[in-house]
Design a protein around this nucleic acid. Structure first.
Lengths: 361, 361
DNA sequence: ATTAGCACTAACCCTCAATGAGTGCTAATT
DNA sequence: AATTAGCACTCATTGAGGGTTAGTGCTAAT
């Protein structure tokens, strides 16, 4: 039996074992080469670019072992080898997080939207566009979740006998509007009183809390005998009802089509579908909101089939109070992780800073 | 000299003359074939598919004449011929406008957004998405111009000592928000009075009118001695200042990349640029708002270089009162005009109907 | 444990010839 | 006079053959 490049010779368990240093170096080098060239890496090429002196034959042995361990695959005999998702996972885990970033890029990122008085959505749109341009991949950002952010103000505007326009302004600086229907007609003056009441009662409360409190008020007897209160609660219930499922802005989808790593038409086709559905990507963004720092989803780790040819790098952004949403880059599994991770990380930080400044607390 | 397929033999003026019937038939047939196949059409192919019996040789003669008149070009000797922009212009001019449309398609278009209480922007987004899916091309729609639509209500919300959130609701059902800065701090109560004043004074006036009226008030002496009025006018000026340059929603850009008529990478690249700039397409949409019915911009007729490989089919939509914006399809010059024109036409009509129902008059 | 050497593979590239769809022109036919 | 058949010619496309190249795995020598 051929000896393995692992420290322990036992066969049954070797897949869980750690690679020895030299094997790690080779794998690292293969990955970085492949990220650069987008072409299968052969032993001879590698022996030239790798730091230490190692003959092609030796490298071949190591590569063969790495292939057996699932880090590399060959598209056909006599072709170089290509990293697998497992290899990329190894690679990103071994990176210092977050990798460093050039001052030049930092500056470009910081430039976005330092103009005063921009709306949150505008800031997000600008940021995602900038990030797409910088990374040359597709970028996404989820808009602040209404449920976690807190009420700054509510307005009720009569627009017809049975329709009321509700405008919710959150502390995070997001303005949401929706139309609700009523059975009875109210005057604008009455709506103003209702709005004033709701503002007094619920300002600074989170949407979630508000929904809960309204629910409680509805079963409270006192409510029934107080006309304004009763109306306010009834309208408030509708107004604060699950608003918008949370949106997502996308930019730079086109970049993917021009990327050398994505030559095959088929994978692009399916990616387009993934973007159209939105929900799968949205879910990943939501997941990444739960934890701090940069998240990396590589190929097969994505639930959605259509996303299994690409990696997502995400990071959440926040204001003083809450995590609001997250921003991410979608690219080929063979993307330049160092570069992208650092950009996403830094962008999320700057975005958090900008949004915090714009928040209404 | 070879005889021309035109009724008049005079040389100097023949380029302005009308094609005889047979030449028209041939040209028509070439165009429809090319729209279908996306491949150069040869005389033999054509002699088979064309209705009347005509030998390839005869067709060759006619084609040669049509080429000389600028309706066809050859990419190289011994290749079939391809229609020019001039040919497409001839073709669409000869179509009955608007062409008929199948009940099935009609139904699909009508399905969009008959749910109650949708916001205008949501309706537009849904419509443009539907149209992109139906046509398999890229679609654009301009959001209602704020300047022409009339005020339903204005709200002023204090969000910090020097920032006020302005919310404008127009009769067309569009909600716009922006932040303005003040030198002095106002209480929310004061802002409410100001808003009430502005609502009383300007409700139902168009934004353009309002700006003019405010301008007049500012030079009016009475304004200076009336505190509330003075403040209202000052804040109102900022609030009604040229808001948003008019937005545009895009969907289905990806469709263009998968289209067989757009094989060449280069033209796709430049199209992407055109979409990123937005302004050029916006200008075309604006132009088309000025006239009724469907507009067709073919290739070279577009000012922007990047758009000269494609055609735009646009139609304006409106509510009871005003033309609000327009919706359009961007595809290759060799698109199926009949199909697309009818779809755009019908979609614009349905959109107008839906928006009118949602309007606040 | 490492490396040199060797046989073998498969993609890639070049050339060349055959094929086929197309043209323009001229002469014959209607 | 208009149409068509015939013919020579052009040029993109295809496929076969051959050389080149980058790669592999295996074995034996270091």
């Amino acid at each position: 039996m051929v000896k393995k490049v692992i420290d322990n010779g036992k066969k049954g368990v070797r897949y869980n074992l750690v690679l020895n240093e030299r094997a790690q170096l080779v794998l690292h080098s293969i990955i970085e080469n492949y990220i650069q060239s987008a072409e299968p890496i052969g032993s001879r090429t590698l022996s030239k670019t790798i730091g230490i002196t190692l003959s092609p034959a030796t490298i071949r042995n190591i590569m063969s072992d790495l292939a057996e361990l699932g880090y590399l695959i060959q598209n056909h005999t006599s072709a170089g080898r290509v990293p697998t998702d497992k290899a990329y996972r190894f690679y990103v885990n071994s990176l210092a997080t977050p990798p460093s970033i050039s001052e030049q890029i930092k500056e470009k990122i910081s430039q976005v939207s330092n103009e005063q008085g921009s709306q949150v959505e505008a800031i997000l749109a600008e940021t995602v566009r900038m990030l797409a341009e910088l990374t040359k991949f597709a970028c996404v950002v989820s808009t602040p979740k209404a449920s976690v952010s807190r009420l700054q103000r509510i307005e009720l505007i009569k627009i017809s006998e049975d329709r009321i326009l509700v405008i919710l302004v959150t502390k995070a600086g997001v303005v949401r509007d929706k139309i609700i229907f009523t059975n009875e007609s109210h005057t604008q003056e009455f709506l103003n009183s209702v709005a004033e009441f709701l503002n007094d009662k619920f300002k600074d409360h989170s949407m979630q809390e508000i929904r809960k409190e309204i629910h409680q008020s509805m079963v409270d007897d006192r409510t029934r005998y107080h006309d304004l209160l009763a109306h306010a609660i009834r309208l408030g219930k509708k107004a604060f009802e699950l608003n918008q499922p949370g949106e997502m802005l996308i930019d730079g989808q086109m970049n993917l089509l021009l990327d050398s790593h994505f030559h095959e038409q088929s994978s692009v086709r399916s990616l387009i579908d993934a973007f159209e559905q939105k929900s799968a990507i949205m879910k990943i963004l939501d997941d990444s909101m739960k934890h701090k720092g940069v998240h990396i989803f590589i190929g097969i780790e994505n639930d959605l089939k259509q996303l299994q040819d690409c990696s997502l790098i995400t990071a959440s952004y926040r204001n003083n109070q809450n995590v609001l949403g997250s921003i991410g880059v979608v690219g080929p599994t063979s993307m330049d992780y160092k570069r992208i991770i650092s950009m996403v990380d830094y962008t999320a930080k700057i975005l958090s800073k900008t949004i915090t400044e714009q928040s209404y607390d």
